[in-house]
């Protein structure tokens, strides 16, 4: 008889004293991750232990918090970006101490509420390999890329129905283009699309296996190839219209019984020690100012114009995604 285990298994999660439960996306945890490093530091410096509950995406982690409601086992949620923020703001998260925000890079400080602490960021871009044919010239615009005949069926992008990166692309292009041009852009861009992938991993896999020559990713993606493979040929496009800045944030649940530990944990997340590990563990820029970047990052081009989502930007909703699917199917 196996069923008695379920009573034990199913009994509500109880927290050990000084144990923080952190809901986050999978790659934030595990061997060699930023989460692992932070967990060890937290135990050493504050005595608070960390229990990670990993999810496939940050969106899924947020959904879990919403589903569990006020009884949620989570103390901290890590990985919310601007596309998830409207949904996250509807839930009960605490205002954070102002001191946590004092060392942030300019442009990352919250304008209204202080419920979300930025801990890293990256710029969205189209990534390519300069050894393949028809390398995009410097200064090429987003619209120029979408309409250039040489790039037909050579791009792989993430699906807005299943990927938060895909949805960020909708927010980006909505911010950049007026309504009429937005439709033209997407109708044209789908001419360049070889295939649409469920998420970043599969899309990047297709790009590396040379199935597609261009992929939607981050301007920091080339840093990985420089650092780990000594390969300087992977490049990211800097667009005159601007590159969208995706900011990852963390927040503390109002229902948390471990508030002290949680605040200390976020203090460590924004400390110089952990922030200096962000580039090589997250392959993103650290949110704290004055953190020394590795050479692989300093050699990367930085966008001349940064597109930020408005503070109160709603997540690209289901209707917008439906409209996007119609562009893809050639129905609009």
């Amino acid at each position: 008889m196996y069923w008695p285990i379920f009573f034990f298994w199913g009994s509500a999660a109880f927290a050990l004293p000084n144990e923080l439960t952190v809901y986050t996306y999978d790659s934030f945890t595990g061997a060699g991750s930023l989460g692992e490093s932070l967990s060890a530091l937290s135990k050493k410096k504050t005595g608070c232990t960390t229990k990670f509950v990993p999810f496939a995406t940050a969106g899924e982690a947020l959904s879990q918090v919403a589903l569990e409601g006020p009884k949620t086992a989570a103390d901290i949620l890590v990985g919310v970006d601007q596309s998830l923020r409207a949904r996250a703001d509807a839930l009960a998260f605490d205002e954070l101490p102002p001191s946590l925000f004092s060392k942030l890079q300019s442009g990352l400080e919250p304008k209204a509420s202080r419920r979300w602490l930025p801990f890293d960021y990256g710029y969205l871009s189209i990534v390519y390999d300069d050894r393949r044919k028809d390398v995009p010239p410097p200064g090429m615009t987003l619209m120029g890329f979408a309409t250039h005949p040489a790039y037909k069926k050579r791009l792989v992008l993430e699906d807005a129905r299943t990927s938060s990166l895909g949805r960020s692309l909708l927010t980006w292009t909505q911010s950049v283009f007026p309504k009429a041009e937005y439709a033209t852009f997407w109708t044209s861009l789908f001419q360049q699309v070889l295939t649409v992938s469920p998420g970043w991993s599969a899309a990047y896999g297709l790009f590396l296996s040379q199935e597609a020559d261009f992929v939607f990713s981050y301007t920091t993606s080339p840093a990985y190839h420089i650092e780990k493979e000594l390969n300087p040929h992977i490049k990211a496009m800097i667009f005159p219209e601007g590159n969208f800045r995706q900011i990852e944030m963390a927040g503390i649940l109002k229902s948390s019984k471990q508030k002290k530990c949680a605040v200390k944990w976020l203090e460590l997340l924004s400390s110089t020690k952990i922030q200096s590990e962000v580039p090589r563990r997250q392959w993103m820029y650290p949110a704290r100012s004055g953190v020394k970047l590795p050479t692989s990052f300093t050699s990367l081009p930085v966008p001349t114009k940064v597109i930020d989502a408005p503070e109160n930007a709603a997540q690209a909703d289901a209707e917008l995604v439906r409209q996007w699917t119609q562009f893809a199917a050639g129905l609009k």
């Binding site: 959904s63 949904r87 129905r161 949805r167 649409v196 289901a318 199917a329």
Partner: peptide
């Protein structure tokens, strides 16, 4: 499938749960 013109029930469920809640 190569693009959003192919949406299966499983994809729609995924979208409803993980993206639109």
């Amino acid at each position: 499938g190569g693009g959003p013109k192919f949406t299966s029930i499983e994809v729609a469920i995924y979208q409803a749960i993980r993206q639109d809640f």
